[in-house]
Design a protein around this nucleic acid. Structure first.
Lengths: 216, 216
DNA sequence: TAAAATTTTTGTCAAGAGGCAAATTTTTGG
DNA sequence: CCAAAAATTTGCCTCTTGACAAAAATTTTA
């Protein structure tokens, strides 16, 4: 629920440990409901009822805070991907559809709806964010691509990859229209069901001949 | 190419007119290659080789500049939607696929890849941006939804709408993975072809019974 | 050409940002 | 309980931002 995986620091008192964690959680909260602009030492301190210099003590400069925060955010999603990956009790079709549904339903969460657009925007001008996001997405797609490769073994591997990209794009894109607070939020369940069926059937009915990577 | 539709001011000298336009174009350029953070009066002026107070003269405060800029950006996309809407010389299938391809290829543009994520992020904390974006997307979807309603007249209207949302989500989401400077940028043509086929076939093979809006 | 309107420059301001340094207080392990 | 480490507070600094006001220069039009 918290959408943050915080690894403990290596040194310091347990009290300091808690503060360290509180700073990260408070930062995340600010990111979620006020956006990246509002994420300042002053605002973090204000929410925590302390001074900005105290935040500086734990995170000597803003880049360190941001990169550590990014890490906690993405680690959590990678953890979620792991859980999906390990589920082995379904057919490939069931797996594909349940993953699609899971991801779409997650993106309707306030946290996901609010945080990812900030990261997408930042990634365009910050290669550190870009790289870390890429890692996450690459790993996340792995599951889908593997399923595609089993569902459509007749398709070349690079096309299978791109199909994974398209599916992921479809999921992420729905954030904008059916995410938390968006126009289609309350239809998210129906949309999730439709999307998984459209994607599944679309992938299954792709003609082989049209998928040659060199094809015109 | 310019991705900006600037309507002339109502008053002022022609020289002032040009400056007004230059400010908006410069602002857009900054937004594209440095992002929303860097969009300050000072930076605009620096790029133009003038003083920030001169920018203030044309746009008394930043909200006015931002809302006017947003207007110019979105007006241009609405204009592009119009062009698509007017093309009547194809079958519905051809139309659907060519629209899909057109949108996906546009999103690979540097301008679109850079600007829209900024708007998505901002829309989460700025209802003015949210509303204007919604208008644009609603209008943009109209074309797709109309096609869907002709391709699948057996499906209830609200489900047709949601299919439009899913298609739009798929398009927009690809910005993140195959937009300008992204990992899959150079595969964008293949991805566009795949996506339009997956979506088309997926939509065509949706079972009617599964689409009842009240269905469990 | 002169008057009027528009544009540019100069100067100033308060608020808030990130950051540094040293004094003080609190916590913890021995 | 007591030193040493950790955490907090106090105070200050520089830079940037958006904003305002008034003087100066420029352009247009009558």
């Amino acid at each position: 629920m918290a959408k943050l995986r915080i690894e403990p620091r290596e040194e310091g008192y347990t009290r300091g440990q808690e503060i360290h964690e509180t700073i990260l959680r408070t930062s995340f909260d600010i990111l979620v409901d006020q956006g990246m602009d509002a994420l300042t030492f002053g605002n973090i301190a204000k929410r925590m009822g302390t001074k900005s210099q105290n935040v500086t003590y734990y995170f000597p400069n803003k880049n360190i805070l941001l990169s550590e925060l990014l890490n906690c955010i993405l680690s959590n999603y990678e953890y979620e991907v792991d859980i999906i990956e390990k589920n082995k009790s379904m057919s490939d079709e069931e797996k594909f559809k349940s993953i699609a549904e899971l991801i779409i339903l997650d993106l309707a969460t306030k946290e996901t709806t609010r945080v990812f657009p900030e990261l997408w925007a930042k990634s365009n001008h910050d290669s550190f964010v870009q790289d870390r996001l890429n890692d996450l997405y690459r790993r996340g797609r792995q599951v889908t691509v593997q399923l595609v490769s089993r569902l459509r073994p007749d398709i070349p591997a690079d096309i299978q990859q791109m199909i994974g990209v398209i599916a992921a794009g479809c999921f992420e894109g729905l954030t904008i229209f059916a995410g938390h607070g968006k126009e289609w939020e309350d239809k998210i369940e129906i949309i999730a069901r439709l999307a998984k069926n459209i994607l599944f059937e679309g992938i299954m009915s792709l003609p082989v001949h049209a998928n040659n990577i060199d094809g015109k």
